[in-house]
Nucleic acid binder design. Sequence first.
DNA 1: TTCCTGACTTTTTTAACAAAACTATCAAAA
DNA 2: TTTTGATAGTTTTGTTAAAAAAGTCAGGAA
Lengths: 204, 204
Amino acid sequence: MAAGNDHQDIKREKILEASYQRFLHYGYSKTTMNEIAGDLSMSKALLYYYFPDKSQLYIAVMRKIAIDYTNGLEDKTDTFTSLKEAFVFQINTNHDFIVNNYNFFDFFRLNEQNLPDMIWEIVDQVHLAELNLLSNALKAEIEGGTIKPVTNPEELITLLLDALQGIRDGSVSQKKVSFPRKEHLEGIHTKKLLLIDIFIKGLM
Amino acid sequence: MAAGNDHQDIKREKILEASYQRFLHYGYSKTTMNEIAGDLSMSKALLYYYFPDKSQLYIAVMRKIAIDYTNGLEDKTDTFTSLKEAFVFQINTNHDFIVNNYNFFDFFRLNEQNLPDMIWEIVDQVHLAELNLLSNALKAEIEGGTIKPVTNPEELITLLLDALQGIRDGSVSQKKVSFPRKEHLEGIHTKKLLLIDIFIKGLM
DNA sequence: TTCCTGACTTTTTTAACAAAACTATCAAAA
DNA sequence: TTTTGATAGTTTTGTTAAAAAAGTCAGGAA
């Protein structure tokens, strides 16, 4: 029984890995179940034995990389000596995450694929992990006395994260797409670090 | 000659006004040249006598309301006693502008209409007017000594405007559209005012 | 019983094309 | 110079058929 589940889990992992590679290179819409099955030298029907449908498979892969990402954040929680340090870490980690998985998210087409709403739960979990990391660092600095007390630390961090998001979008205005091209990501990253400086000073 | 041009200008104005009402209610794509002509009890062909094509007509209307907007900003330039006051004015004015012309801009569809690039020049002019108002106020405060000198005031204001933009987009995430629904605009407005407080303190 | 497949059905995407709606033009009239 | 009806040209919309992909299932192998 246990061995059977182990084997199942290993196979599931293999499928997730192969799927990730396909999705990463070609995006959701341009990846077919036949291709994934082909990569694994198995029949397409077997994929449906392990996963209910294509969208659930995609989401399973997404959840996996999201968990890797949030684990990376949680490991670092409460290890920072300042809010700024925490923000820099968040911005850098997020930057790398986006750069590394750029094609996986298929940003230009993903909205049109009407994937299950579960996808937004994953996004929320990622946001929550970021929020947690940063609001903990904020609370610590408030306790330490370097930053003035605020009524709602989580709300404040959300506000700042939204503002940082704006730096991203500011770099793509005048375009017909809503997500920055890969070549803009570096400039966005620099501007975010600049903005955080002002934020932090404003909180002191 | 002068009278002839006067008359032409008056007629042009009438066309612009009728077009504005149509575009405001139905947006660009759902407004036809026949309807505009019908509102004015003139033939469609006459519209083409005064304006080269539909997109140029739309742009002419857009330019008109953009100029009204930027004039409102320019009239107020250098009348503020603080950067914060200037920001509050900009945020409020911009808010009203968006609310009043919400349907005109047809935000959910406008990107797909591939209008001439001239449209972005108008957007740039609006940005420039906002940038001018705010960076003047910033420079004044720097001279007054309440805010620390910065190497590039314009760049800084651009950064802050981009950040404010993020507050807008933060309120629409998880949706498939990139522009906030009308009912969200009030909350966005409030958050922007909140953020500016932090900004200003961070610059002091 | 669990894992797996080939063959099959159903759904979605794509392409081609006709009809309708709309933009844009123009000769001629006011 | 200003205006229009008629019409040409283009884009959008709707239809249908073929192709491709998703998804199912009866039954075989381990």
